[in-house]
């Protein structure tokens, strides 16, 4: 919607990024640009490099020495296997949503969500846990937006998987993230929770103009929620274009026997998505 950033500068730019794990190629000279406000799906079979690529975008993993670079929001994240020195400032503008939610289970949901503001809060206040009413208000609003405000003071570990993932998304809202990277956010969730999480991400994308990159196991979800899809195979980009063009025959062409692994996600469930008003996922409390 309100893409405030100049559109000539990509939100994410990866150039010639390679990553080798113990002699095994995890990323093979990957180059791509993602414009501000896009919602992009990253698909591929397990081990195709989706997670590895996303972790590199957030500077949680480093590429091979001597080649490749990653820029996010016009700032260097890493180049030639070296992390940028101001990485923490960049990370604070990038929200990361993990497959296993990565919340601190023993802390209340509210505290988990408040950690989104750590990049802005002065150290003495964060270490003593002195968040202002304004910061708490922001956290509560974020929880309200993802539909779990009533769980604010529940321990994160007591929430269902879908609720935990929405709390993790609320954390990125408190971060005021301009880019959200979601690493298989629905791989551990049941179909209903999966839909809710994807609806939430899509809504943040359209309402706030946040750039979203989401890795998915299931092509159906990519087609449903993301206009653009980047497909990976063995660490290399093998398709980058409109999701609508990903027909079963193209998938078979791209992935061969692996195509089945990508297509079966929401089989026979086209109705469940269409039957749902898009606001419902955000309003409903589970």
């Amino acid at each position: 919607m309100n893409a405030a950033m100049p559109t000539d500068k990509p939100a994410i730019r990866v150039s010639k990024l390679s990553k080798t794990f113990k002699g095994c190629k995890a990323l093979e000279t990957v180059s791509l640009d993602i414009a501000p406000g896009e919602m992009v799906a990253l698909i591929g079979a397990s081990g195709s490099g989706k997670s590895t690529l996303l972790r590199h975008l957030a500077g949680l993993a480093l590429g091979d020495d001597g080649t490749g670079s990653v820029d996010v929001l016009g700032t260097r994240v890493q180049s030639r296997g070296q992390l940028a020195s101001d990485i923490r400032r960049t990370r604070s503008r990038v929200g990361f949503v993990f497959q296993q939610f990565n919340l601190v289970g023993r802390l209340p949901v509210m505290t988990n969500v408040l950690t989104g503001s750590l990049g802005r809060v002065p150290l003495w206040r964060s270490l003593t846990g002195r968040f202002t009413t304004e910061e708490r208000r922001l956290a509560l609003d974020a929880l309200d937006r993802v539909g779990i405000a009533d769980k604010s003071w529940t321990r994160a570990s007591a929430l269902s998987g879908g609720q935990q993932q929405r709390a993790a998304i609320a954390r990125t809202l408190v971060q005021k993230a301009e880019v959200i990277l979601a690493d298989e956010p629905i791989a551990s969730l049941d179909p209903v929770s999966s839909r809710r999480v994807m609806e939430t991400l899509a809504r943040i994308n359209t309402e706030d103009g946040v750039t979203v990159v989401v890795s998915l196991h299931q092509v159906d979800f990519a087609i449903r929620y993301c206009p653009r899809t980047i497909a990976l195979k063995k660490g290399a980009v093998i398709y980058d274009g409109p999701s609508a063009a990903l027909t079963p025959s193209l998938l078979r062409e791209l992935y061969g026997s692996q195509a089945e692994e990508l297509g079966t996600g929401v089989q026979g469930s086209a109705s469940f998505v269409t039957g749902l008003p898009s606001g419902l996922a955000l309003a409903a409390n589970a």
Binding site: R88, R89, F96, F98, T115, L123, S126, Q175
Partner: peptide
């Protein structure tokens, strides 16, 4: 993993430990 979740918000190493 939770520590990485905190790190991804741009937290300082001390904040990673505390939270």
């Amino acid at each position: 993993r939770p520590v990485e979740g905190i790190r991804a918000t741009g937290a300082n190493p001390l904040e990673e430990i505390v939270y």
